[in-house]
Design a protein around this nucleic acid. Structure first.
Length: 190
DNA sequence: ACCGGGATGTTCT
DNA sequence: GAACATCCCGGTG
């Protein structure tokens, strides 16, 4: 079966519904590909942990835009993280891509992350995967249906029983179990 | 293995 | 001025 790009309609739903369905889909950025094995949902303007909680700003313009686009933000002075915008235009919902299993373009990933030894450390974190795939602030707003970064379905369905936990690295709304991952995958972040 | 701290700059209070 | 959806390195056990 040939892989097909996820259509706009896939994203036009609540981030809590989209997030677990993104597991086992494939993130494509130029020659680099990785299977999505860990995600977190950020539920929009009513979610205190979401960047959308404070309302529209220069940073969150993409997040509040139409679904199916890539929201990239800069954090800790040196890292980028990437999300798929979901829901309806104006809602500010998104799914953070937290880890991939590298599939293709590993040589280029290693050029961008020269200190990495094991393959499993190439893309096992939200900032690691952005560095490996060359996703930075210039990728913010990319259309995931038509742009140079896309998410495709290569026929592997999401897990029937994904791992599930609270979200990582946040300080507000820490109790909400909105992280999902592929159980047992060595590329899931620590 | 675990733990602590530094890097670095944008965003928000 | 503080916080930050993180990562890496060097310490100790």
């Amino acid at each position: 079966m040939r892989s097909s790009v996820l259509p706009r309609s896939f994203y036009r739903r609540a981030s809590l519904a989209v997030a677990p369905e993104l597991l086992n889909k494939v993130l494509v950025a130029g020659p680099c590909r990785g299977r999505i094995v860990e995600v977190e949902a950020y539920a929009g303007g009513l979610d205190p942990a979401s960047h959308a909680y404070r309302g529209l700003s220069a940073r969150t313009t993409t997040m509040f835009g139409p679904p199916g686009h890539l929201y990239v933000y800069f954090t800790y002075g040196m890292h980028y993280c990437a999300n798929a915008v979901t829901g309806e235009d104006g809602e500010g919902q998104a799914v953070l891509l937290r880890a991939l299993a590298p599939l293709a373009g590993l040589a280029q990933m290693r050029e961008r992350r020269p200190t990495v030894r094991r393959d499993r450390d190439l893309t096992s974190g939200p900032a690691r995967l952005c560095q490996a795939l060359g996703i930075d602030r210039t990728a913010d707003g990319t259309d995931l249906v038509r742009g140079w970064v896309r998410i495709v379905d290569d026929g592997i369905p999401p897990p029937d029983d994904p791992g599930n936990s609270v979200r990582i690295g946040i300080t507000r709304a820490v109790d909400r179990p909105w992280r999902w991952f592929v159980r047992g995958d060595p590329n899931v972040s620590r």
